[in-house]
Design a protein around this nucleic acid. Structure first.
Lengths: 164, 164
DNA sequence: AGGAAAATATTGAATATTCAACGATTCCCG
DNA sequence: CGGGAATCGTTGAATATTCAATATTTTCCT
């Protein structure tokens, strides 16, 4: 097959070679937004790799962890806490209910609300996930340095606070 | 309709009230992975809001920015640079080709490869996006502090480097 | 009280992402 | 040289996320 055609490749007739070099704008790697995305992606990837054997995505760990305080949490609170949009959370919770990690109770004080709880099965899974997560944190602190890690956390917290 | 039934709500028969409080494990808000996700989400949301009027998602800005060095980039290089999986990048580039922001050329030296270039139309859009992004950076530096911003960037860079 | 407005969570359709498999090309090595 | 392995990018199917609309309940206001 003609690859050029199938891939929509063409020759750059619309291009004109610039007579002089453009002033190069800030490289993307210097933007805070990019650095955050890159760091987040990498750390998440590593954490996901550790969670792989439990077959649980990072978001579910967050949900379990928040619920493991034993108190009930509404879907709205939970969505904020675990950084997920409402519909996404609803569907993820559906899966977790199927897996019996978590369950819903109607809030008796406000019947619009649902109160989420963690099950015993969820609790034991959470413990395994917590130790995987802690071992990752330890690994990071190890070859990144305790001070750097602490400094970074502090700066991130303060950025998040200011950003609201 | 019976909401309890439709929402798969039930009462917590499987729960037993713990006789004593559990030792609370590290709150999720203290995990580096969570702080990164939160900061990334927030900064991205703000940047996306600024890009809204151009109708361009942040990922497309990254692509445009990388390509705006005028050199050609293979899809593989680009995927690494813009933090996107290969198939995701392919499909996003398809859209950008449709919008005439970007175009493909077959690499003459290695015909498996495709070399991506930015179009003139893409360049002018990039300039508008760059200035939106710079104004965001300025806004952050303003109420977060120049030093904190610089420190945070430095720590992120070093984390990313160590994480590989 | 009573009805409009707000809050809460879910649903369905549209959209986007991911995983696995593929086709094409190049590399490597006996 | 020749053929199996590796590389590069894309595709299609499966999965996940998002947007807008909805149902239900509560709040607010006069």
């Amino acid at each position: 097959m003609d690859q050029a055609k199938s891939l929509n490749i063409h020759h750059p007739f619309q291009q004109s070679l610039p007579a002089v070099a453009k002033s190069p704008s800030t490289p993307i790697t210097e933007h805070l937004a990019y650095l955050l995305a890159q760091a987040n992606r990498e750390i998440n990837r590593q954490l996901d790799a550790r969670f792989k054997k439990e077959g649980v995505p990072v978001e579910q760990w967050r949900i379990l962890k928040v619920l493991s305080d034993g108190k009930g949490h509404s879907m709205g609170d939970l969505a904020d806490a675990v950084l997920l949009n409402h519909p996404t959370l609803t569907k993820m919770v559906d899966r977790m209910v199927s897996d019996a990690l978590v369950y819903r109770v109607q809030d008796p004080d406000d019947r619009r609300k649902v109160v989420m709880f963690i099950s015993d099965r969820g609790k034991t899974l959470t413990q395994r996930l917590n130790s995987l997560a802690l071992s990752q944190e330890a690994h990071i602190a190890e070859n990144y340095g305790n001070k750097a890690t602490a400094d970074l956390k502090r700066l991130l917290e303060s950025l998040i606070e200011k950003a609201n």
